[in-house]
Design a protein around this nucleic acid. Structure first.
Length: 417
DNA sequence: TCTGGGGTCCTAGGACCC
DNA sequence: TCTGGGGTCCTAGGACCC
């Protein structure tokens, strides 16, 4: 059965920066970056100088002396992105949002109403431009992977439709880095073998690629082939893990400081879990040292965790255990980041409290200690709901905000639980 | 005198079970 | 004296995405 390019990938251009330029006309046409210590996003005018998101502010200024840094209007990002998504939903209910500013659409059921995919895509772009004021690029193809590549090629502010008959011609000259899953490391390895384009990659002997890069790349190549799974647009998905991290420059890992940071992270993670009646059996911590090397330690318990104090305790045990284990390592004198993540998530209705009381263990919500903590946490959650996050909390947590990033920005990146 | 914060997925080895 | 094979879960590390 022949299928047309009915999968669309819609991707707002330089989203945060475009919003800033929309809100403040004096910024339009100028090289701007959102952020400070690190570039969270930048305008196309800044990209022309080589500025990229994730880059340190220091390096960005070196590349582009005229760069203007602006503080983010994070609430507006959420509001405007949601408005864009509602435009997409006007076209089809089959929308898979994959981040704040991009989504896949399956318009195969909409062509009889709105016309061919190219027309639908053009209409989306026009509406987002007229009604919201933002540039958006759209790619249309037979699969999600191809549609995403097409939208990247379309940027900025463009539309690219990949005709099923000319897919290979379209792909061959493109840089391998446009493929989903080919990042800087893989790109560098391929470049060492003289492979820069998708065509060159397709022509390379698979055995050589396999010995060099493992099986990963083979699956990425085959992902370009058309199959049903590549086409399926899944309207929604739940997150499989919840985490929080904090970078704080270089610090000695003094117990007092480490406890304070972990308490704060555990508070954020556990609060989000409880808000969605979720809990997780696996707790993972990550420690990054001054030299950027990082290690992880995890523990999977019998009972799902969502109590702030329990999560804090487990995280402390994992972190201090790892630090003791590396006390001799020359590179572990200073740490630069701590993270906590909870996975193996399960639903945890309040019903669970009514389980028979088992011997008291902190991580068991059916135990006396677990129930007490659950009750305290829910009291705190309720007070915060009414008076705000800073109204109440555990002592070590309420004190400090090490993160250089506002909570509003953190919330932007959170996935649906 | 730099390197944020939220996630996903994959691999490899070991423990353990049948 | 020899020691299969498959499956699942867990841990650690790493690449990648936005």
């Amino acid at each position: 059965m022949a299928t047309g390019p009915t999968i669309l990938h819609a991707d707002l251009d330089a989203f945060y920066a475009s919003v800033e330029q929309l809100l403040d006309p004096s910024l339009r046409g100028r090289a701007i970056a959102v952020g400070g210590g690190v570039v969270l996003a930048c305008s196309y005018e800044a990209k022309r100088y080589g500025v990229q998101s994730g880059m340190s502010g220091w390096k960005a200024r070196q590349l582009c002396p005229d760069l203007t840094f602006v503080g983010g209007h994070f609430r507006d990002y959420t509001r405007l992105a949601d408005e864009v998504m509602s435009v997409l939903h006007d076209v089809t209910p089959v929308v898979q949002r994959i981040s704040i500013d991009e989504a896949f659409l399956d318009v195969s059921g909409s062509v009889h109403l709105f016309g061919p995919p190219a027309v639908i895509a053009a209409r989306i772009r026009q509406r987002v431009r007229d009604e919201i004021g933002l540039p958006i690029s759209v790619g249309a193809a037979r699969t999600k992977h191809l549609a995403k590549i097409a939208s990247q090629v379309a940027k900025p502010d463009g539309l690219v439709v990949v005709d099923p008959a000319t897919e290979l011609e379209f792909l061959r000259p493109l840089p391998v880095g446009l493929m989903w899953g080919v990042g800087p490391v893989t790109q560098r390895k391929l470049a060492e073998r003289g492979i820069h384009t998708i065509g060159q990659l397709a022509d390379a002997p698979e055995s050589a690629m396999h010995s060099m890069l493992g099986a990963v790349l083979g699956s990425k190549i085959s992902a370009l082939a058309v199959n049903d799974d590549q086409r399926r647009v899944k309207p929604h998905g739940r997150a499989g893990s919840v985490g929080a991290q904090s970078a704080f420059g270089r610090r000695e890992p003094e117990p007092r400081f480490v406890r304070e940071v972990l308490g704060n992270l555990a508070d954020r993670v556990a609060t989000r879990l409880r808000a969605k009646h979720r809990a997780g059996r696996t707790v993972t911590v990550r420690i990054r040292f001054a030299g950027m090397q990082a290690i992880t330690r995890s523990r999977t318990g019998r009972h799902p965790v969502s109590a702030t104090l329990t999560l804090t305790e487990i995280a402390e045990q994992l972190v201090f255990g790892a630090l003791v284990g590396r006390a001799d390592a020359p590179d572990s004198a200073q740490i630069s980041l701590l993270a906590i993540s909870v996975s193996n998530l399960v639903d945890q209705p309040a019903l669970q409290l009514e389980l028979p009381v088992e011997p008291a263990t902190p991580d068991n919500p059916g135990s006396a200690v677990g129930a007490a903590r659950w009750a305290i946490d829910h009291s705190i959650d309720a007070v915060r709901h009414k008076f705000g996050r800073s109204a109440v909390g555990y002592a070590a947590v309420a004190l400090s905000q090490h993160g250089s990033v506002p909570d509003e920005f953190r919330e932007l990146a959170e996935h649906e639980l």
